[in-house]
């Protein structure tokens, strides 16, 4: 549980956050994304990408039937091929958690639920806490909460901090992922500040975006967040996970995130316990790339399950 801090402590914590070199971060992210990963290394990376994937569906039109199909795909992404691993988790709205839990029992695939008035986070604290608590009661192993960007941007860090702490307490023993929604934070400095704030308040993971706002996850923003995680680890010894989400549709981009993860945080983070990729349409592209590497011919959408 997060320890309560006084306003003065939080103030000094926030003042101690270094500013981000924007040009440097963007150049570093661009150079890392150019690295060429081929053949057996590519297959290894694609395998890891599947094992770290949060297969996501967050639509108003989600039905129990769609969740059932998603769960089957999560357990066995490529029907008839047991060499393709299961994904890490499925990520959905709280009302569908019970349905997913029923399908995924015993499979090792975890259930993640968004909560706290996703995607805007604009609701009352007790409603948010109750939502998180109910999601966990329904069987969620992980909770993806959103921060109150309105409060953060108006400088009310205390409110954001307390909310994260309260939700963390409410969703024990489930893991808590804190969505910063970097597309609404405006600057890299804000992203870094929000990352440190979320980690100090007890986040197990920090996550870039809801996927409902453009821009969603980008490489430079991810670099800033990963470096925050690294610095936080140096300061406190705590290992916090990272989850980019939103707009990651191709294997190429997924591999760029893995390269950045390797270069910034290292081998300790190259596992589903510390890294997740939030995506809905990425899985098919990864499966197609694996098929292409194995068969030697370019693949077609027509031969992979539609979500």
């Amino acid at each position: 549980m997060a320890t309560a801090v006084t306003l003065a402590h939080l103030g000094s914590l926030m003042r101690g956050v270094r500013t981000v070199d924007q040009v440097g971060a963007e150049e570093r992210a661009a150079s890392l994304s150019k690295r060429s990963i081929k053949r057996s290394s590519k297959l290894w990376a694609l395998d890891l990408a599947i094992r770290c994937m949060d297969l996501t569906t967050l639509e108003g039109a989600d039905t129990p039937g769609k969740v059932a199909a998603l769960c089957s795909k999560a357990i066995r992404p490529q029907p008839g091929d047991a060499s393709i691993p299961s994904v890490a988790a499925v990520c959905l709205y709280p009302s569908l958690v019970a349905e997913a839990t029923r399908h995924l029992r015993g499979s090792g695939v975890r259930v993640a639920s968004v909560a706290t008035a996703f995607p805007s986070g604009q609701s009352f604290l007790d409603v948010k806490v109750a939502e998180a608590r109910q999601a966990v009661a329904a069987g969620a192993d992980e909770v993806d909460m959103v921060i109150d960007r309105g409060a953060f941007l108006s400088g009310d860090y205390q409110k954001v901090y307390d909310e994260i702490g309260a939700v963390k307490e409410a969703c024990e023993p489930a893991h808590l992922k804190v969505i910063l929604e970097t597309g609404e934070l405006g600057t890299y400095d804000n992203v870094r500040r929000a990352s440190i704030l979320a980690m100090a308040a007890g986040a197990d993971f920090i996550k870039t975006s809801t996927g409902k706002v453009q821009p969603a996850a980008t490489l430079p923003v991810s670099l800033v967040m990963m470096e925050s995680i690294r610095d936080f680890h140096h300061e406190t010894g705590r290992l916090v996970g990272f989850k980019p989400a939103g707009g990651i549709r191709t294997s190429k981009v997924a591999i760029a995130y893995l390269v950045m993860l390797w270069e910034t945080l290292g081998a300790e983070w190259m596992t589903p316990e510390r890294f997740r990729l939030g995506a809905s349409s990425l899985l098919n592209d990864v499966l197609m790339q694996i098929s292409k590497e194995r068969s030697g011919s370019y693949q077609s959408d027509d031969y992979f399950t539609k979500d």
Partner: peptide, 8 residues
């Protein structure tokens, strides 16, 4: 050869 084997 790539065109001939392309699944799409």
């Amino acid at each position: 050869p790539w065109l001939a084997s392309h699944m799409d």
